[in-house]
Every structure is written in structure tokens, then in C-alpha cells.
Write a protein that binds this DNA or RNA. Structure first.
Lengths: 116, 116
DNA sequence: TATTTCACTTTCCTTTAGGAAAGTACTATA
DNA sequence: TATAGTACTTTCCTAAAGGAAAGTGAAATA
């Protein structure tokens, strides 16, 4: 009694992929990380660099990303006080994911254009 | 008058990444593709290979994936009729994305374990 | 003094995702 | 005849995501 399983196990891949998806889920997390890694540091700059994002969503997602230690919120005590968002080193480990998605997205758009 | 933009443009990356995310969004699409690419072909096999998925969600996601031509639904006219889900060649173009997510997820789990 | 900028928050609302449980129509097997 | 398997669908529900619009408080600028 061991093998009543009629299917092929794929948990070795499914589990870590789901762990990753759980961190970067939703429409906005990767765009925000991309914007911050590009060098946008101010709230309004990030907001303007990502078409369609609202301040409410941006504020919420920035908090999530901070908790996952992908970005940090820096308070600069000049007058006036400035708030800067900077990528943590850990954010850069997402580069291969971003690159593969970018590459696939570019190709996908080409594919759809070509057939229609 | 051209440059009133105080932020850095990152649309070159953000747009294709969002195109990709729009196709593989949600918790379940990549797990299902992984299961089908692993060789699971029957509805119940796919369902059992992905812990937590319900038949309702699986049915809906399979339809979405078919529309994007990532899998195909094959009706085999034996008695009884069998229904098989097979990966389309296009599904294999997702491999770099899956690999990068898997790798990142594995590392992420290690990172969390190590610090706690 | 009035307006603008910055970094948000608040309120209200709609949509989408997802889960639990049961049902269904067909066929196969004991 | 009774049970089990296959591939779903249906109903009901909650939670989370997301959008639109306005507001806020402090400080800078005109």
C-alpha cells in the first residue's frame, strides 16, 4: 500500500512557483518594483511612471513590498521632509523573473499582432 | 515643450511584463500548466496533482488557458468518451518564466527558514 | 494671502477570485 | 442492483482587488 496515485506528481515545481507567485501577486507589484529599480524614488514619480495606478493602490502595494523586504521607505529629514522608496538588494534577485516575463510579453504581443 | 516629466520612464519593461501577467494571472494558471506539461491529461489527475484546487476553478482556468492556446482539450471517441488536456507548443515558451519563478521560490523559502 | 506640491488617506462602490458543497449525466464495475 | 468513477456544473457565499473621487495637513512658492 503506497501507490494509489494515478497522476504524476509535479509538486517539486508547483510548490516553489506558488511561493513566488504569493509574493509578487496582483497587477501592480512587479511594475512598482521595476519603476523603483529604474530609479524612481518619490511617491508621485512612481505613480506617474505606471499608467493607471491610483494612489490608494500604490500606497497599499508599497507597504506589502516593504514587508517582503523588496523595497525600503526612507525618510530624509531635510526641510521639508522627503520620503524616498529605494530597492533593497533582495529586489534585484527578481531580475530573472522580470526579464523572462518581459521577453515573453514582447513575443506574445508580436504573436497576437501577426495573426490578426 | 516636451519634457515636463520629472520621473524616469520604465514603460519599455512595464508594458510587456503586464502583457505577460495578464495571461498567467491568478494563483492557478501556472500550476495547471506545470501539471499538464508534466504529463497529467485527465481532469481528475490534474485536480489531484494540485493541492487545494476545486473543480469549479479548474474548469474555469482550463477554458482560459485554451483560449490563450496554451493547452488543448481533446475528445477521444472511445467508449467511454475520454477528455484529455494537452499542452500546446506555445505552453513550452513559458518554461523560462516557470524556471525563474521556481528558482526564486526555492531561494525565498530558504531565506525565510534561515532567518526564523 | 492664495495656490501648489507631496504623500498619502478616506469613502464608496463594483468586479473578480476563490472556496464549500451538492448535484448531474453518463458509464463501468462488482 | 449498487457503488464508483469521470468531468464537470450549479448555487451560494466571502474576501480581496481594484477604481473614482475627494479630502487632508504640512510646507513651499508666487
Amino acid at each position: 500500500m503506497a501507490n494509489k496515485m494515478g497522476y504524476l506528481s509535479c509538486l517539486d515545481t508547483v510548490k516553489p512557483v506558488r511561493d513566488a507567485i504569493d509574493v509578487i501577486n496582483g497587477k501592480w507589484k512587479l511594475p512598482i518594483i521595476i519603476s523603483v529599480m529604474t530609479g524612481n524614488e518619490r511617491f508621485t514619480d512612481i505613480q506617474e511612471s505606471i499608467p493607471g495606478i491610483t494612489p490608494k493602490v500604490l500606497a497599499k502595494e508599497l507597504k506589502d513590498l516593504e514587508q517582503h523586504q523588496l523595497i525600503k521607505r526612507v525618510i530624509v529629514d531635510d526641510y521639508p521632509v522627503k520620503i524616498l522608496y529605494k530597492p533593497e538588494p533582495y529586489a534585484h534577485t527578481l531580475t530573472p523573473i522580470i526579464d523572462s516575463l518581459k521577453h515573453w510579453g514582447l513575443n506574445h504581443r508580436k504573436r497576437i499582432f501577426d495573426k490578426e
